[in-house]
Structure formats: C-alpha cells, structure tokens
Design a protein around this nucleic acid. Structure first.
Lengths: 152, 152
DNA sequence: TTTCATGTAACTTTTATTGTTACATTGCTC
DNA sequence: GAGCAATGTAACAATAAAAGTTACATGAAA
C-alpha cells in the first residue's frame, strides 16, 4: 500500500468490526481487507485499544471487536486516539535563531494550526463511525453518491 | 534544517523581502537567514514568482523583491501558490478495492478534508504578510508575547 | 499440550523531502 | 565584447519518516 494514513486505516478497520458485530476478527483477516499486513493492523488497533475503543482477545476465536456501539464512537475520538494531526507541521527548526523572524513565523503559524485543530476536532465530533458505515453499504451501485454531507 | 515546510520557508523569506523594500535580496543571502541553501530558496520563491507574488532579477544587484505591498499579500495567496495542503493526505490506495469500504472511507474523509481546506483558506485570507511582519519586529524583548491573536 | 491469536521488538524497504553539485542562461558593468 | 554575478533547472545524494517484514514471547482456548 502506498502512503495511506493510520487514521484512514483505523476507520476502515473499525467499519469492518462494526459490520461483524457478533464475532471477533483477526488481524490477518483485517490485513487482507486493508491490503496491508497483520502487524500494521495490530499497531493501529493497538492504539485504539489503549483508548478503550476496541478490545483484543487471544487464543482460539480471538481477534478484535468494538467496545462500544458505532453510534457512540465519533471520528474525533478515533482521531484523538491516533495522536495524529490532521494538519501538517509547519514549524521550521528554530536552530540558533539568527534573525528572530523564524520564531515569529513559527508562532503565528503555530497559533493558527492550534486554532484550526480545535475547529476540525469539533467537526469530527459530529460524525460517528455509524455514519460512515451507513454510507458504506446502501447500494453498491451509485458510486457517485458521495459528496454533499453534513459536516458543514 | 530538519523537516520544515515549504510554506513556512516561503513566509520567512517574504518577511525578509518586506523588510528590505528598496533593494533586491539574493538567494544566497536569504539562504543564510533561512538556514538552508540557495537552490532551495530559488525553488520556493520560484513558485511564488509564478504566482506573481515576487520577482527575480539576474545580474549585478539582482535578487528577489516583492511585487505588491505586504498588506495586499494574504497568507492564503502564499499558501495557494505553494500548492501545499495544510491538511494531511488521508486517502489510502484504492488499489483493487476488494470491499468497497475503502472507497467510502476515502470519500467521507475526502469530503471532510476539502471542506476543512476551504474553511482554513478563508481564515488565511484574513492574515496578511504585513500582519506577520509587524508582529516580528516590535520589541525583541518580550518573546513571550506570542499567542492570542485575531485569527478566530 | 497443542494450536491460534495478540504484543512487541528489531530490522528492511519504500517514499518524500531536502540538500548538493553542476551548468546553462541572462543581465549588468567595465 | 569580456567577465562577473545573479537566477533557472536538472540530476543526483543524503536524510528522515512511514510502512512492511521477520521473529519470537505471551496468553487463552480446545
């Protein structure tokens, strides 16, 4: 797989778990769906486990499952759990700071980013895993149904 | 320099140009200020030149200069010129798309990102290069003056 | 006790970005 | 026009971050 992000991998895995409510799914099975390998799945879901979103069981019939109903899992929670910023890092190395302008640019952009971060988090809070799952199934036809949702 | 972004490099360079209104500044001189090397400066400012924000002149006393007053250069323009997204890329490789959920996740996140992108751009429009420059000079003392600005 | 799963560490591969070297081009000055 | 001083750009090397891989310890169930 080329250059995905842990966040989308996580969402993808979670939707799968949601669609298989009864039984646990193994890392290997998920890895096939996500077109990656089991260790990467464990890495990603491992952080979600620490956040109390999923649980893993070992041994026979072990695997991953959701700890809460999908409607109660917001994208913000997932995003926060991943510890990944939605925004790029714009700060340059302060280094020896010869001219001071670097610091100002860093500070201004840093403020802006922090501000934006909060704004985006608030929007992600309004989308639940279930929202994505519902969008994922309806009818495999009509792939042009995307766009125009309610995150505005 | 470790892992900065072209955007902050660009802003830093622009502030320098703004503070030297009369004369052109060479890539080498800027490179020293930005703690990088001349070619990188040319690469970054080159894209700003294509956007009509700066101009370069060759030969004796050549170098870079602003084409417009700093008050009329918004961060959005700079940001748009760099063609760099403020947001991380969350899409995973559609690949062969075995399960269709990938596409949905990509679509939902894509929508969200596009939406957020527009929102951030609107905010960047309200900050001008001059705003940063004014912030950069006042008094070198009080470095703890950052934070709490007006991009909200 | 065997089997199947996670948990994790260590390492390799891949990809993006930045840094560097080299050289052509253009404009200014003498 | 000669020569210098700058940009413009291509090609390549170095670096860093992310993902992929291998290997093995641990724990749970049949």
């Amino acid at each position: 797989m080329k250059r995905s992000s842990r966040l989308s991998l996580a969402l993808h895995a979670l939707v799968h778990l949601h669609k298989q409510p009864g039984e646990a799914i193994t890392s290997s099975t998920l890895a096939q769906c996500l077109m990656t390998n089991p260790v990467v799945v464990r890495r990603v879901l491992g952080t979600l486990r620490e956040a109390g979103i999923v649980a893993a069981s070992k041994g026979h019939d072990g695997g991953w499952r959701l700890l809460r109903p999908a409607g109660e899992i917001s994208l913000r929670q997932v995003y926060a759990a991943m510890g990944e910023s939605l925004l790029i890092r714009t700060e340059s190395d302060p280094g020896d700071i010869a001219c001071g302008i670097v610091r100002t640019v860093n500070a201004v952009m840093g403020d802006f980013i922090a501000d934006a971060e909060a704004l985006l988090a608030a929007r992600l809070e309004r989308v639940s895993l279930d929202d994505i799952a519902r969008e994922a199934t309806p009818n495999p036809l009509h792939p042009n149904h995307h766009g125009a949702h309610s995150h505005g």
